[in-house]
């Protein structure tokens, strides 16, 4: 049941341009469309997943100007003039991103539903460079839930890429 909600007869579509994975997308959107829905429904980039739609699972994580954020808790109309990167945009020229490869090597997923969010979150974590120990990586990856319980493999994958970067 939906309650007697306020109805604004004059809600108008906004003409906006989103920069996603380096491409501009011109869209006509109602103001309440979340960035997540715009990516999935309007741009057909369905790699970004909707788990809870309320900020509680991390499945919808994308990178905005390099920072990990939840696309379900922001509106598309608020995200013009920023660089949005989704899971579809992280691999360079046909090669897997090192984290994608590490997720395969370290058995870091089962059903795969949380994986795009996990990988985008892990890229954000590496950009931030605030996690030094395994415990800190676990804490700073805790915004991404995995119902399959692949967490150990996920942390192993992140640690492997983290170590390979610090050895470069």
């Amino acid at each position: 049941m939906i309650p007697n909600f306020r109805f604004m007869a004059n809600s108008e579509k906004h003409s906006i341009t989103l920069q996603v994975n380096g491409h501009p997308y011109q869209l006509e959107l109602l103001p309440w469309v979340s960035l997540l829905d715009a990516l999935r429904e309007n741009i057909s980039l369905t790699g970004t997943k909707k788990g809870c739609d309320h900020g509680q699972c991390g499945a919808c994580t994308v990178l905005i100007d390099g920072k990990r954020k939840l696309s379900c808790l922001t509106l598309a109309v608020m995200q013009e003039d920023v660089a949005i990167t989704t899971i579809e945009g992280i691999a360079a020229e046909g090669n897997l991103h090192p984290l994608q490869q590490a997720f395969i090597d370290k058995d870091a997923f089962q059903c795969g539903y949380c994986t795009p969010g996990q990988i985008c979150s892990a890229i954000g974590l590496l950009n931030e460079n605030k996690a030094n120990t395994r415990e800190e990586v676990q804490d700073l990856m805790s915004g991404n839930l995995c119902r399959c319980g692949a967490n150990k493999g996920i942390i192993n994958a992140v640690m492997a890429v983290k170590q390979s970067i610090s050895h470069e």
Binding site: G58, L70, L73, G143
Partner: peptide, 9 residues
């Protein structure tokens, strides 16, 4: 508080 993603927003 919250998660890294939420704190970024």
């Amino acid at each position: 508080g919250a998660s890294a993603q939420i704190r970024n927003m």
